[in-house]
Nucleic acid binder design. Sequence first.
DNA 1: CTGAAAGCGCTTACAG
DNA 2: CTGAAAGCGCTTACAG
Lengths: 335, 335
Amino acid sequence: MAASIEDVAKRANVSISTVSRVLNRRNIVNSETRKRVEEAIDALGYRPNVFARGLMLRKSNILGLVLPDLHGEFYSEIIRGANQKTRELGYHMLVSSVTADDDGHDVLSAVGTQGLVDGIVVMVTEMSSRIRTSLSQADLPMVLLDGDVPGVKHDSVVIDQQRGAAEMVRHLLDSSPGNRVLFIGGHDTNLDTIDRLTAYRKVLAEHGLQPGRQDIVHLDYSYETAFDYASQHVLAWAEQPTTIFAANDEMAAGVVDAAIAATLSVPDELKVVGFDDTRIAQLTRPRLTTVRVPKSEMGAAAVELLCARLKEPGRPSTRITLQTELVVRESCGGR
Amino acid sequence: MAASIEDVAKRANVSISTVSRVLNRRNIVNSETRKRVEEAIDALGYRPNVFARGLMLRKSNILGLVLPDLHGEFYSEIIRGANQKTRELGYHMLVSSVTADDDGHDVLSAVGTQGLVDGIVVMVTEMSSRIRTSLSQADLPMVLLDGDVPGVKHDSVVIDQQRGAAEMVRHLLDSSPGNRVLFIGGHDTNLDTIDRLTAYRKVLAEHGLQPGRQDIVHLDYSYETAFDYASQHVLAWAEQPTTIFAANDEMAAGVVDAAIAATLSVPDELKVVGFDDTRIAQLTRPRLTTVRVPKSEMGAAAVELLCARLKEPGRPSTRITLQTELVVRESCGGR
DNA sequence: CTGAAAGCGCTTACAG
DNA sequence: CTGAAAGCGCTTACAG
């Protein structure tokens, strides 16, 4: 049985009030008394019970992190950045994933029962209204990662991906004039895909171009699906100068491998670029031209915002925008 | 202010005892009363306060997961498997990393104050006695992932990597007779490296071979270090038929890329194999021959063991051994 | 089947 | 500077 505050009090010959005071606001207790108490604490290996403390203080020092998925390099980096900052600021981190078919209620149960976490960082990548509804009912300090939920009070961390995507498309158009640029996205309800697609359309329009019916396709962000799809289309694509702009590196890698399997040369016969700048981008051959997304910084910034709000609940809502950056490598040629 | 059990009791015209009963042991309360209480709960959106409950029950339903690092595909898969199983069993998961230079105390503070978590899953990859000491002082249900801490009571999940490593070396020796096999490991204090190296030596001995002074090198498991190191040695290695057995896929990929940068052909002029079968193994060209380690299964199995112990504290210590498996791809030729 | 009451281990006014 | 006491929101014997 772990020692309680009462054991400490007895051993130090003081009341539990005094023990509590040396634990929390050390300055107001006489230094000799304090010393006695501290010795007792050490001797007993006393550590305050989180539950009793939480019951009074109404805070747990636990932050919840809710991601769409815990899989792959992208989320792994976010978790890493968030976790590091969390520890740095003296909190703990509860991690959860919300799968696509969870109904909204689970977003909350994902972060635990009432009171378990002091606040949450949530990444919402789909526009599903269920999640939004359940989020708006959560009466919790909340930071939204890369996405907005209108009508709910929260801080947010977003990435300026339209800019990175636009920069990418401009680079493709400028470095390989006359090339047709196709877009392969995730689901058409995915917020990131929507943003990247918007930028793609915009830049094409700037250049007096308009994507054809077949020029935009929505897959599921996975290597496998992209590989399968590309395997069937890669020869047709290569009939004219073409660049595939995939909305993430995974799919870009799938396309590259499908092209190579069809004995096409990348970038000579088909150019391919990705997005995110995950580990994969540097491991494929040729290396992927992509847009760097500051993944661990996103996690860290979100945690920082959340902690700032916990400290100062009345502060105005803040939105931090992180920049993306075009990274030119080999897969698009024309450097 | 969230509704409390008292609010529910008032609204349903019962005592808090009854509310508590329908929450916990529903059967013993009259069905009409229960209905009234349930309606009140719904109407108020009542959710029990975790702290009050934890204070009485002395459990939080939170499991701690402590990993050496949160980086990369390997740990990401473990987190994923553990998280899924955790939710499946109705628990929450607190994640933390322990960096190499943490002193042992941090292993515990990593999982929180007294009482925060009901038990922990810890992965110990280094032999550092500090971590072991601090672990042995933790009076918590504990599952060790891939590693033992003698003298501490715990359950454990291990992988039979000696077998996978032995199978690998045997395959290399059999499929490319006369090849010299070099071993590139992580730090020489890393438990996985030690296991894999042991198997390597054993199989060599079985074949009447003995590794030379230069045949074993310890790096740090990273792509970059392996790439740099290999860049300086790859030409010398290739002077005679040689296979590099790297203790993880990251380093194997680094060696492959260094070889290719030196215009050597893999596997024709140099063979390279890895370990873990992470995503990388399939993305490098040529694809890596490696040993599959059941990563997400490790996480899931550890959580399962931990929960079993929480349910039945007196059960005997259990050790689950997960098998590894040789996966032959292209980087070692001689299929 | 239900209620009144004790108690879990803390924090924090309130007196002194 | 210190102690006695109330109270945080629950669970669970103990009576009835």
